[in-house]
Design a binder for these strands. Structure first.
Lengths: 194, 194
DNA sequence: TTATCATATATGATAAATGGAATATGGGCT
DNA sequence: AGCCCATATTCCATTTATCATATATGATAA
């Protein structure tokens, strides 16, 4: 029997947060912004999930936190990574992955069963996705490049890190390029063969 | 504030199962095999999740089931899609997606924070992933092509469907090609710049 | 002045998914 | 006789994630 195979997805958000906090102490709110701006394209999470995970990490001793009083804003809780947290992150980062990350793409699910739909419905779907993915591609080529440049200008000590940030950005660029090419090809095939 | 955006992922497995059952009645066990062989590359699920979802779909009236007695094998429960189920599937398939499917790739998470690792650890990780993705690519180019051919030979009435199956296969091929190219490029960059 | 916006956190209900194990049948192998 | 294998289903505990909502503050805009 094909085994239900082991995934390591279960704990990734934990390491996204530890990773963010390895640069500097941040609040839950700031971590949500970090996720939205930096990791969203390969790992995302809802606000509620972030706060819950932070709680958990503090209980595990991987983080500490303190309340910061603010005049012009609501008070907030600032999280710091502990040495234990840093060690745990380091260990996870160095772990060899013996599988590829599983993909979930509901467009492909829809398409797989789309012989039940009429041609125009399918084409409309594909053309909309084409525009969305084209937009995503231009994000990788422009906005994200700019964001990385900004970050390294503000914190020159993270220049080593910027190479890795750009590597993940480049993954997005290449994969989205392929995706858009696939959409173009698919639209043509459906127009011609269906 | 950036909104926590709506995903439609929550119910996709439901439609994978309805989709499989739209071809023919199947048991939970066979649906697990269907998922493993046909949709795994864009949607997967554990056995336990499949059986529980089938329960739910039957309660919702989208499926019916009957026990099949077998001599040489344990009895089994065969699921049939109902007209309501077919209509529900149809509606979902035709729904316009106004977002792109979010990605989750823990390799990219690791890489993003990998400035904390030494060069050789990173390169070992990348080289292993390279071999895994190369294997995956050859799956799309060979085994899956063969699987689709087999299916259409056995059921010539599904020839229209085969176009869509092949379109999803081709997505895997193009995306994996890009991924392998990215890994090659990244390995070179790390070797040279890090 | 009222409303909205950005900041900031929290929680309760529910859904989705994982991981592991338990149970059962009959065939085939040693 | 004892074992493993493929078939076939179920259950439990837990984790992960979503959705909606609630609360609070001060600044800014209508």
């Amino acid at each position: 029997m094909l085994q239900d195979c082991a995934r390591d997805n279960s704990v990734v958000l934990k390491y996204v947060l530890l990773g963010g906090l390895s640069y500097q102490p941040l609040t839950g709110y700031q971590l949500k912004q970090f996720v939205d701006s930096s990791t969203r394209h390969f790992w995302f999470a809802q606000t509620s999930q972030i706060y819950r995970t932070l709680d958990m990490l503090e209980k595990e001793g991987l983080l500490t936190s303190e309340i910061q009083e603010q005049d012009t804003r609501p008070d907030r809780r600032l999280y710091h990574i502990t040495p234990t947290g840093r060690a745990d992150l380091q260990t996870w980062l160095a772990e060899l992955m013996i599988e590829i990350s599983p993909a979930k793409d509901s467009l492909l699910v829809r398409l797989f069963f789309s012989a039940q739909l009429d041609k125009e419905t399918v084409l409309t779907q594909l053309r909309l996705q084409r525009s969305l993915h084209q937009r995503q591609l231009s994000l990788y080529r422009n906005e994200i490049v700019a964001l990385i440049n900004e970050s390294t200008q503000q914190r020159p000590e993270l220049k080593r890190d910027a190479l890795f940030w750009d590597v993940t950005r480049r993954n997005g660029e290449l994969v989205e390029e392929a995706y858009v090419r696939w959409l173009d090809e698919t639209i043509q095939r459906i127009e011609a063969e269906y």
